[in-house]
Nucleic acid binder design. Structure first.
Lengths: 228, 228
DNA sequence: TCCTAAATCCATACACCGTACGATTAGGTA
DNA sequence: TACCTAATCGTACGGTGTATGGATTTAGGA
């Protein structure tokens, strides 16, 4: 039973081949490279050069692997805080951009991450401080800060979900939208029709970056209005 | 081979047991009752009293079943349009509430629905007219209407995702948040700590309805600010 | 030094999954 | 009648997550 190189039994101290961290790191690579469906326990074990069942010594089941990945994504997320050097709304936007970018770093995990309640509420506690700081500087009351931060987070989540879903399928919005709106029965959507015709294919070209900025501008304006 | 009752081969006229619609309706019931994981082709077939392979005559594969469900959820969605009888912002809010409610009707499908690009862009074209109408009345330019509607949709999506995820796990935010924030090392999140202490457990009690309204208020205020 | 307990990994096996392939039966049309 | 097509079913294959239990090796105390 001399499986060349393979060793069985308890490893020497500090020589474990497997660890929760190593497993999760490899899982993250697989998901990033080949998508969430490519992540199976067998595949994961094979990539680590190990028997599938060995994984279960470090993680109770596959759900734990996925939860660990969500945790990992959030852990690699640090919101910058330019602090009082810039206006509060710029401070808020800067933190929001960083949050979006953190989610974008692993698009194949977006769905998993955003629907992982534990991970999300973790980040609310641990990482969102710059949000609260900025909203505090804006002059909002405690309750308002809390609600404003939630609103901002929900926007970023919704935006990121759309961004991740689309990236996974590479579609073209503009031309599609134009032809589809034109195909609608007359009077079905008059305002949309007018807008679409007014903008034309060029004007409709959607850009995620400017869409995100537009959302941030709306939200900060809305927060500012709540101060008065 | 006399499987009592079961018959093979083409059914007699008017005796078809299956149709795309019947399959999807049953699938929706399973998902609503027992969650998305309970939906398997075998389970679906069994519930319909049919051989698993029969499903494939009406739908090409399981992905098509899921896409069909997303489609179905959106199909049962009609945004009300109170029209010029109310201020534009109330018109917008009313449509947004209806959209949220439509998504809430099938929480176990939220993730599937929100990440189905085709279904989402369908609804943008077909059902969002009240959004565009209201934003038009507010006095926004074509491009602004387009962007504002997207921002609003992203917010609703993010909010609904959170709402659906939480409902699936029934958690308690408030007490948890209080103890967790207190457990943080000193100075780690000063603003959050201050807010949490100021609000107390009662003040922190989170209510989805008022959270949603708060978001709507912020967004409409933000849109209004863009007019000037 | 010896012995026991714990740690780590592995082999086997099971139930379930989606679905490819082909057979079976009835309707519709020529 | 003969044929084609629609709808359903039976069987089977490769893949999945993971329960169980055993093999091997080290750590640590007596």
């Amino acid at each position: 039973m001399n499986n060349a190189g393979k060793r069985s039994g308890r490893p020497r101290a500090g020589e474990e081949r497997l660890s929760r961290e190593a497993i999760l790191a490899t899982a993250l690579r697989i998901v990033d490279d080949e998508g969430i469906d490519a992540l199976t326990m067998r595949r994961l074990a094979a990539t680590l050069g190990v028997n599938p069942m060995s994984l279960y010594h470090h993680l109770p089941n596959k759900a734990a692997v996925l939860a660990g990945l969500a945790e990992l994504v959030f852990a690699g997320l640090e919101l910058p805080d330019p602090g009082d050097a810039v206006p509060w709304d710029e401070q808020l936007k800067e933190a929001a951009r960083a949050y979006r970018n953190g989610l974008r770093a692993h698009p194949n995990l977006a769905l998993q991450v955003l629907s992982d309640t534990a991970a999300v509420s973790d980040i609310v506690v641990v990482t969102m401080e710059p949000f609260y700081r900025a909203l505090d500087r804006a002059g909002l009351a405690a309750r308002q800060i809390f609600e404003a931060a939630n609103t901002l987070i929900d926007f970023i989540h919704g935006f990121s979900l759309g961004e991740a879903s689309v990236r996974a399928e590479t579609f073209e919005l503009a031309p599609d939208l134009l032809t589809r709106v034109r195909a609608l029965p007359d009077g079905k959507a008059p305002t949309l029709s007018r807008i679409v015709e007014e903008l034309g294919a060029d004007g409709l070209a959607y850009d995620f970056d400017s869409g995100f900025e537009s959302g941030l501008a709306t939200l900060t304006a809305g927060f500012a209005a709540a101060v008065r």
